[in-house]
Design a protein around this nucleic acid. Sequence first.
DNA 1: TATACATTTCAGAAATTACTGAAAACTTCG
DNA 2: CGAAGTTTTCAGTAATTTCTGAAATGTATA
Lengths: 180, 180
Amino acid sequence: MKLSPLMEKFILHWGEMGTRWGVNRTVAQIHALLYLSPRPLPADEIAETLSVARSNVSTSLKELQAWRLVSVTHVLGDRRDHFRTTSDMWEMIATIIEERKRREIDPTLALLRQCVDEMQHDDETPKEVKERIKSMLAFITMLTGWFDQIMALPRSTQRTLLKLGAKIARFLPQETAAEK
Amino acid sequence: MKLSPLMEKFILHWGEMGTRWGVNRTVAQIHALLYLSPRPLPADEIAETLSVARSNVSTSLKELQAWRLVSVTHVLGDRRDHFRTTSDMWEMIATIIEERKRREIDPTLALLRQCVDEMQHDDETPKEVKERIKSMLAFITMLTGWFDQIMALPRSTQRTLLKLGAKIARFLPQETAAEK
DNA sequence: TATACATTTCAGAAATTACTGAAAACTTCG
DNA sequence: CGAAGTTTTCAGTAATTTCTGAAATGTATA
């Protein structure tokens, strides 16, 4: 696929962003390319477009599929797999957050719970340290709970909330601001 | 500072998490150590505790300060700098998100705006591609707008919203669910 | 079933990132 | 000012991550 300078700029930037967030640059570039592409692309075309090895594309696509960000389709009269990603930004972000939660937050919660559990019979660990761990567990639990609930709402409600922004505060029962 | 097995486990996990999110492992470990520590720690104590070079600690602490996650204090009768991080999880997360926004989202928005600007006189880039870039810009603009507004609310309101979770939908004007 | 096409695997090479230790720079106090 | 204490810088090294190309594996069709 021939890239215009605009497309190239976009893809390169996305690659950079990827690295900042712990995602392999090529993986992020492929994702960006597929996001822009009006049609699903076969692996060899991706390799050619981005000037990376075919094998690298293969590995990266597997990674993107593991993230549920890329899916396979087929084109009539072509034996090759073709790859595409959703063009719905909301869906894309939701998927990324869900996967990160599954891969990173959930194991962290598990560890924190284990820590809190073990600390009962642990007289080596200072009291203050135990408190810190407990409050981190409480906080992350609350935040992920919020997130799960919001994600379970119908898309239209989510969109309403997003559009409302801070105006949502208007709808809250009055005394809201009264706290320590 | 002597680490109990519990503390060690926590710090190692945090280091791993860091690497997943594009943060240097040592930087994340130091952050974790300071989070747990009941008192501010001097750099050499951090180095000793985590078994890394003093110079590495120095660099990492600078990094953490650049992220506004760590600050310097002094202890009476000690010429060394002592370092601490907030123990308020909400504040910590807010800082991390704000910094990431400043470093990564804002430049991305700038790039997207530039792309949208340039695409007017660009006949090399397919129409569909232009649309994708526009809708990404629209989406990120909306999301960061929401975030900025929520962050500007008083802490107590934020806490109320967080606690409410999906129940917030109850307070919305009725017809909410009516959309495409 | 054999052939052509397509994809994956993987060992080694290349590139990048992280770390160390020594020296330089800076700071405080006597 | 000078000595002692503290922090920073940075060149070289180490560790890790990424990438490639060749071989192996998988798959469809003739």
